[in-house]
Design a protein around this nucleic acid. Structure first.
Length: 286
DNA sequence: AGTCTCCCCTGACGGC
DNA sequence: TGCCGTCAGGGGAGAC
């Protein structure tokens, strides 16, 4: 599931239900699910066998399962519709089941990767000395990472010739923020999505980061955001943060601050939701 | 190098 | 009923 809070909910589920279990075998039911594993599906499945899973890691929207006593990790990205589910063996296969991992123990559960749109996937990679899969070295730390550098982020925004929402979605600047939490944080910060990043003062950037963290922590506290059954934790349960959204999906509804009807604008093949009064467009528009 | 558009998929939904 | 266009929470490749 797409953004940082939802992925972290999944990571915690894996830590509880999958960590420290030894893999018996893996079964790839759709080759596209492992397309980022260049050596192929057979190689992927074979190389997982017999390894014990360490503590699951996460950076932004990526998560991974380290394989103990190796320098390898199984990297996962949920894309738009991916789910990692811990299911009883006897549970019927999901319609979009792409991959199954069985464990060499007496626990009656297996790990399943289910993905309707197949934008997500799993792959096996070497890790850097700090445990990060090497292929995601370009992904920036996320705002909940204690080592995220607020000042460096501000300086990067000042250097960039782009707009603030594009920057929030740029995973090489700050990771874990997607369309929903970008709109939520911008609404809270009273910033228009097309505001040039070069115009943000240091206090303004810090305030924005504070809102990004607040909205993500609030979502995390209630299990993430779920509009439908696609976005669930490893036990298939939905989070409740959709009830707390202030901007995303609220076209035509009154702004929760000033009552002005919220607007939706097409934006990069998606949508941006904002309050036309609280979040005024930049004066110099392109 | 930085920035931006396209495109990989399936399914749901509304209008005609 | 069915067909078509639109939309959906992502990010990488490749074009400027």
């Amino acid at each position: 599931m797409p953004e940082l809070p939802e992925v972290e909910v999944v990571r915690r589920g894996l830590e509880r239900w999958v960590a420290h279990r030894t893999i018996a075998d893996a079964e790839v039911l759709h080759p596209r699910a492992v397309r980022r594993h260049l050596a192929g599906a057979e190689d992927f499945a074979h190389r997982l066998q017999g390894h014990r899973v360490g503590t699951p890691g996460r950076r932004g929207k990526y998560l991974w399962l380290p394989l103990e006593d190796t320098r390898l990790a199984v990297l996962a990205h949920l894309g738009m519709s991916g789910q990692l589910l811990v299911q009883p063996h006897e549970a019927a296969d999901e319609k979009h089941l792409r991959l199954r991992v069985r464990f060499a123990d007496e626990v009656d559960t297996e790990l399943r990767f289910v993905d309707q749109r197949t934008f997500g996937g799993l792959s096996l990679h070497d890790t850097t000395p700090d445990g990060l899969p090497d292929v995601i070295a370009h992904i920036a730390r996320d705002p909940l990472d204690p080592l995220f550098d607020d000042e460096a982020f501000h300086q990067a925004l000042r250097r960039r010739r782009t707009t603030v929402k594009r920057a929030l979605l740029d995973q090489s600047l700050i990771s874990g923020v997607g369309n929903i939490y970008a709109d939520e944080a911008l609404w809270r910060a009273r910033l228009h999505y097309d505001r040039p990043t070069g115009s943000l003062t240091r206090p303004r950037t810090r305030e924005l980061l504070g809102h990004v963290r607040d909205v993500m922590n609030a979502a995390l506290a209630v299990g993430g955001t779920s509009f439908d059954s696609l976005y669930v934790n490893v036990n298939g349960e939905s989070g409740y943060f959709d009830r707390s959204l202030d901007a995303y999906g609220r076209e035509g509804l009154p702004c929760k601050r000033c009552g002005t009807p919220m607007r939706r604008r097409p934006w990069m093949n998606r949508s941006s939701y904002f309050c036309p009064k609280c979040q005024t467009p930049p004066r110099i528009s392109s």
